[in-house]
Computed example of a mutant assay.
Amino acid sequence: MTAFPCKPAALVALAFLAGVAVAQAQSTVADGQKLAFDRGKGNCLTCHVIKGGDLPGTIGPELKDLKTKYPDRNELTAIIFDETKRNPQTMMPPFGRNRILTEQEIGAIVDFLQTL
Rank of each mutant, 00 (worst) to 15 (best):
P8A: 08
L101C: 00
V20Q: 08
L66N: 03
I79S: 04
K69I: 10
Q33S: 03
Q33K: 07
R86T: 12
I79V: 15
F95W: 10
G32Y: 00
P8C: 06
Y70V: 00
Q33Y: 03
I79A: 09
I106K: 02
E83G: 11
F4N: 15
N74P: 09
M92A: 06
A30N: 06
L101W: 02
G107P: 13
I59R: 11
S27C: 14
K41R: 11
H48T: 03
L45K: 15
G32R: 02
D111S: 05
C47W: 00
R39F: 07
M91T: 14
A78R: 07
G42L: 03
V12M: 09
P93I: 08
R99A: 11
G42R: 03
M1N: 13
T84I: 04
Y70Q: 01
G19S: 10
E62S: 15
G60N: 02
C44S: 00
K64E: 11
L11S: 12
E75R: 11
P8E: 10
Q33M: 06
Q114I: 15
L17G: 05
K7L: 08
G52K: 02
P71T: 06
G57D: 04
Q114N: 09
A23S: 07
V110H: 00
R39W: 09
F37P: 01
L116D: 03
D72G: 06
L113M: 11
F81M: 05
I109T: 06
C44M: 02
L66R: 01
A25P: 00
K51A: 10
T84C: 04
F95E: 02
E83V: 11
L14N: 15
A15G: 09
D72Y: 01
I106L: 03
T46N: 12
P5N: 01
P94Q: 08
P93C: 07
G52Y: 00
A78D: 13
P8N: 13
L113R: 02
M1L: 13
E103S: 10
T115N: 02
N87P: 15
R99M: 14
Q24E: 12
T46C: 15
D38A: 07
M92T: 05
R73N: 12
D82M: 05
P5W: 01
R99N: 13
Q24R: 12
L35Y: 04
V22T: 14
P61N: 10
A15Y: 01
N98I: 05
A23G: 07
H48P: 03
D54W: 04
T102S: 13
F37G: 00
T28A: 11
Q114E: 15
E62C: 14
A30R: 11
V20E: 12
M91H: 09
A18E: 08
T58I: 13
I59G: 11
L116V: 15
G60A: 06
V29G: 05
Q26I: 06
A30F: 03
K69E: 08
L66P: 02
E103C: 15
